[in-house]
Structures are given as C-alpha cells and as structure tokens.
Amino acid sequence: MKITGVELRTVEMPLVSPFRTSFGTETVRQALLVRVVTGEAEGWGECGAGTAPQYSSEYTHAAADVLTRFLVPALAGVRHAHQVAPALATFKGHRMAKAALETAVLDAGLRADGVSFGQALGAVKERVPCGVSVGITESIPALLDVVGEYLDAGYLRIKLKIEPGWDIEPVRAVRERFGDILLQVDANTAYRRGDARHLAGLDPFGLLLIEQPLEEDDLIGHAELARRITTPICLDESIVSARAAADAIALGACQVVNIKPGRVGGYLEARRIHDVCAANGVPVWCGGMLETGLGRAANLALAALPGFLLPGDTSASDRYYRTDITPPFRLEDGHLAVPDGPGLGVSPIPDLLEEVTVSGTWLPVQPDRQDNLGSS
C-alpha cells in the first residue's frame, strides 16, 4: 500500500447544548480530520484535540501544523499502519495528531483488504453498552432534568463532571432521585492531595469510580488517595501508553483505566493498553472526545474488545450533534452497534462534510529513495 497524499480538513460543528467541564465550556466542536489516500483506498482519522490546550497540551491548530511540517512528510516509505508509530517516533509528543494519522492509514489499509476495524482490533461483541457524560449545569434541578432525559433515552450509565464546589451535593441529589443507577464522576484533575478527606465524602454513594481526581503526573498522589477512599480510582489523563498503564497499576494508583485512543497515540497502542490491563485484572472503558461519526465508529470497535467491562462514553450521535457528518449512530436498548463494514465501516457524507468544513489542505507524500529506485 503506497500512500500518495494526505488531506487535512478542519470542520466546525455546533453542539446540541453547551458542554461545561472544569476546563471550560464548549458550544462548537472544532475537529481536525485526516484523509489518507493510497493507490487502493482512502482512509479517515479524527484528531481528538480541542480548540485550546486545556485537556492536554494539544489543540487543533497545533495538530494541523505538526502534521503539515513533520508527521505527514515522515510517511514516505510507510506501507502499513504498524509502521506509522516507528516512523513518527523521532518527534516528541503530539499523540493526538499521531493517532489521527495512524488511524487514517489503518482505515485505508483495512478498507483495501475488506477487513473491519473491529476484526483488526480483536472485537468480540457486535454491540456495546453506552453511557453518557453530563457536564456541569447551572443548578442541581437542571442537572436532575438532564440526567432524567438521558436515562429515559436508554443510557445505561451516567457520568457526572465534578469540581470543587460541585461534587458531593450533585452526586447526592442524583443518587437520591434515581436510585441504584450506574453512576460515576469525572474530576479532570480538579483536586489536590489535600482534598482526600473531602473526596472520601463520595464513598457512601456507591460510585463505579472517580476519574482522574489529581494532576496527570501525580501517580504517587493517586496511590495515596486510593488508600484513603473506597471509591475506585480511574485514570484518564495519566495513561498515555501501555508502559504508563503498567506503572500506574504496579503503584496501586488506579483500579480502572479509561482508554482514549487519541490520548495514547492511536488504536494500536490503545489495544496494547487493553492487553496490559486485562493481564492485571483491571477493567477498562472507552472515553470520548466529542467525536464525529468517524471517531465514534473507531471507538465502538475498540469498546468491543473483551476487557472493556464498563459502559463507555460512546454515546449516540444526537448526544452532541443534530446532524453528524456520517450516517448517525442511534441508541437501541442502551447499546450502539459496532460497524462491520471494511475499515471504519462509515464514511463522511460529502454534502454534510462540505457544509461544516472551514479549511482544507492537500499534502502530497513524496516517494522515498527506495521508491525512486523502483522498489515496491
């Protein structure tokens, strides 16, 4: 498979409702899409970076820049998705940009071979259970209304965003109103080691987990916190590779892991993290980054692996968008179907894609020296 070029396309898609976390409020999802073109097929990838470096150091414009200047030119000579990470290894960081590029190469190769993403990753399920992430609302009554709507829609698990000043009482209110639902919270690094006693106040509510309470580089702090609270700790931002997952588990810093493929550099590394966690008896689940249908399709394939034991943030398309750029994913009995077509199993609908596109760049991939010598 010879890569002839890469298209970078930035789209802007209004969200159904503002999504507020401790990082800020988003009303529009600006996404960087990557299209890889080969002689046999084309493939798509989606960069999970946001418009500002808040969740991580990456953001969409920086991702486009590093792809243009460094990562795409490094594809010369790459013939398979497994070669992408080694080819890009000389460039530090930028895991989300790398993930988008690797995903597009993988998608192109699988489409050419007639193999689905799920087959390639090792999926064992045809559909996956779905949860939904609920942002911080202006009041507890408003929160209860939102949670009630999602439960009525069929979601099997509720995740509440929390931060200092918005934690114990919202959780108490949701538990009292809705009883023994699957409930977890996500702190997005909003707390510090000194907050352990306060966070122990969440223990009586029987939460599935508390996600990333402390800073991403504070594994020792998470291990100490795990000894002081009974709510299981799940790591998100801290887990950037299979090695990081192994270290966190060895330190006792987590009992659950959230796998976001963009955060870890792609779906191949995500599968390795899954394998490390499974070998250590640590359940995993698939996080979300407000993906379009392209990223959602790939996440569903990943979430169908055997170690994904908890419902993920693989919500239906209408959770975020009135109109997606692919055929919409619809919730049925609290589950979404895993696409079974070649590659991602979905493609952008051209007219819808054009409507939301704000910029695009075509980058030819120059042949490497072996190509010039006539080697295949």
Rank of each mutant, 00 (worst) to 15 (best):
L300E: 05
A303N: 08
A303D: 11
A303R: 05
L305Y: 01
L309D: 01
L310K: 01
G312M: 04
G312Q: 02
D313F: 05
S315L: 09
S315G: 13
S315E: 15
A316K: 09
A316S: 14
A316G: 12
A316P: 07
A316H: 09
S317K: 06
D318M: 03
D318I: 00
R319P: 08
R319E: 15
R319T: 14
Y320F: 14
R322F: 05
R322P: 02
R322Q: 07
R322A: 04
T323I: 15
D324K: 00
I325A: 01
T326I: 01
P328I: 05
F329W: 04
R330K: 08
L331I: 06
G334C: 11
A337Q: 09
D340R: 13
L344M: 14
L344Q: 10
L344H: 14
S347D: 05
I349T: 05
I349L: 09
P350Q: 07
D351I: 10
L352G: 05
L353F: 06
E354P: 03
E354A: 15
E355K: 15
E355V: 15
E355F: 15
V356F: 14
S359H: 09
G360A: 13
W362N: 00
W362A: 01
L363A: 06
Q366T: 15
Q366Y: 10
Q366K: 15
D368P: 02
R369D: 11
N372Q: 09
